[in-house]
């Protein structure tokens, strides 16, 4: 709690300055509503925002699982053979550098316009894929070369080497990849929801769009605050797991 205190104080100061500025300058609420209006909107729309947050979170979580299974599995397969790594890595990088907004319309067509949620999951998974693939692959190759030699000396099988040496050595890298990917999967889900542009997904991005169309700025900011809190919570949760595992391993 003491570690959080400075950032909490800063946040409170910024909110207070914002409130005072809005009142002093008499800004129109469609331009910049004071934080008190946003708080009122948050409370009044809480059930709707919560269900939307749950929808976005669920899509991002599914995407994270899909990306972990595909990215981790591919990294595992590739780690066994150097030629396959040379074949796969450029394609993985190509996927990473392609903006998700640009491929979203295509994926929407492929998923079917009635299945916007599937498209969102697929797109968010595409965004979360790279840090997981890269993290698992780097981790699997991070074991001490002398330990690798020791496993050679005692005639370890490929499976023994994987389970007793490479996976434990990779764990910190995998967790780091998961932490980055968790944040990215939320970003990917929101961007994909935006592009899908319909109410089919009922996520937080749709709440943002909907409120924006009606020029209800306080509602927009409330949805945005929800997204922010969700991202922070997700990051903290994965970070806590990462820290616990690190303490057990190191």
């Amino acid at each position: 709690m003491t570690r959080l205190l400075p950032s909490l104080i800063l946040t409170a100061l910024l909110l207070a300055a914002w409130e005072i500025a809005c009142r002093a300058l008499q800004l129109p609420v469609y331009l910049l509503p004071p934080p008190s209006d946003v708080a009122v909107s948050l409370i009044q729309r809480a059930p709707l925002l919560l269900s939307s947050a749950a929808a976005t979170f669920w899509m991002a979580f599914q995407a994270l699982v899909v990306a972990f299974v595909i990215g981790g599995g591919l990294a595992l397969a590739v780690s066994l053979n150097q030629t396959s790594e040379r074949a796969v890595r450029p394609l993985a990088v190509a996927l990473q550098v392609t903006p998700v907004v640009a491929i979203a319309p295509l994926v929407l067509i492929w998923a079917g316009l009635d299945h916007a949620d599937r498209a969102v999951v697929a797109l968010a998974a595409a965004v979360a894929f790279f840090p997981l693939f890269s993290g698992v692959l780097t981790g699997l190759k991070s074991a001490d070369p002398d330990l690798e030699r020791l496993f050679d000396l005692y005639g370890a099988s490929a499976l023994q080497r994987l389970i007793r040496l490479r996976l434990p050595a990779a764990l910190p890298f995998i967790l780091e990849g998961l932490r980055v990917a968790a944040g990215l999967s939320v970003i990917g889900a929101v961007v994909a929801e935006f592009v899908s542009g319909s109410g089919a997904t009922q996520g937080l991005a749709w709440r943002l769009l909907e409120a924006g169309n009606r020029l209800r700025t306080a509602d927009m900011l409330a949805a945005l605050a929800c997204l922010m809190i969700m991202g922070l919570a997700l990051n903290a949760a994965v970070g806590a797991v990462e820290g616990a595992v690190r303490r057990r391993l190191a």
Partner: peptide, 22 residues
């Protein structure tokens, strides 16, 4: 080896048992 080259995630007994278990 030049360094002790022990697996940091395992205790000493597991480290020493490794060659036998393999």
């Amino acid at each position: 080896f030049q360094n002790a080259t022990l697996m940091p995630w395992a205790n000493i007994q597991s480290n020493v048992a490794l060659p036998l278990e393999l």
